[in-house]
């Protein structure tokens, strides 16, 4: 948040979720307007569908789909987020200071999701171009069928990482002992180191050495029909 600007406080113990979302989504907001949402009380679909360059800070844990479909806005959740945080994000940034539940950043086309804690299962499932940085661990089936975009994990990755992966990229610093079908470790070249460093910088953890990461991607063996498998159909 830049200094000296007005902060509008939205209290979810006083206002309805619908009213708060309508205000955050509505027109007539100056670029950079800053909103603080208090008492989120685990509400679902909070700060969804934002489409302007505003900043929203949520003080507390949120329910499902917080900051879903985000475009341009920067949303900071000071707490944990439930399922599907920043799902289908188009651009902008979503940052969670705690842990996130399943399917964080699912199908995101763009933007950056930063999770300071751990992410549960299916993080980045069907990712379509967004970037996700998780400072802790990610659960099983993360990046399942991810098509484009990047997942960076500073901790460990759960089982079946990157199963049926397309052209998305995965960088893991800790262990990734159980890769999903068609996901393989790949060579880390200079262009990858640069890209990873840039993402770490954006996520405010640029001091972590890129040399500690391994890169994973698609073996592209599931892309085409194999005549050997004809009997299976």
């Amino acid at each position: 948040m830049s200094g000296g600007q007005n902060i509008e406080v939205l209290d979810l113990s006083q206002s309805s979720l619908r009213d708060v979302n309508a205000l955050l989504q509505g027109d007539a907001k100056p670029t950079g307007a800053f909103f603080k949402v208090i008492n989120p009380r685990g509400a679902h679909a909070l700060a969804c569908g934002l489409d302007s360059e505003i900043e929203v800070e949520v003080e507390g844990h949120t329910g499902y789909y917080c900051a879903g479909m985000n475009k341009l806005a920067r949303v900071v959740i000071k707490g944990n987020a439930g399922q599907g945080v920043a799902e289908n994000m188009m651009s902008g940034e979503v940052r969670v200071t705690g842990d996130v539940s399943q399917s964080a950043g699912a199908t995101a086309h763009g933007g950056l999701l930063v999770v300071e804690g751990n992410a549960a299962a299916r993080c980045g499932i069907s990712l379509k171009g967004g970037d996700i940085v998780v400072k802790g661990n990610v659960g099983h089936m993360s990046m399942f069928m991810a098509q484009a975009g990047t997942l960076v994990v500073l901790g460990d990755a759960g089982d079946a990482l990157g199963d049926s992966l397309y052209e998305a990229q995965i960088y893991v610093r800790g262990s990734a002992d159980n890769l999903g079908a068609d996901c393989v470790e790949k060579e880390m070249r200079e262009e990858h180191r640069e890209k990873l460093q840039a993402l770490l910088d954006k996520a405010d953890c640029g001091e972590v050495a890129v040399s500690e990461f391994k890169r994973y991607g698609s073996a592209r063996a599931l892309y085409h029909f194999k005549p050997d498998n004809v009997d299976a159909y």
């Binding site: 009380r41 685990g42 509400a43 679902h44 844990h61 949120t62 329910g63 499902y64 944990n80 439930g82």
Partner: peptide, 11 residues
Amino acid sequence: VAFASEYRALV
């Protein structure tokens, strides 16, 4: 120790 399907039940 409290358990819930969703966090909102614990608030």
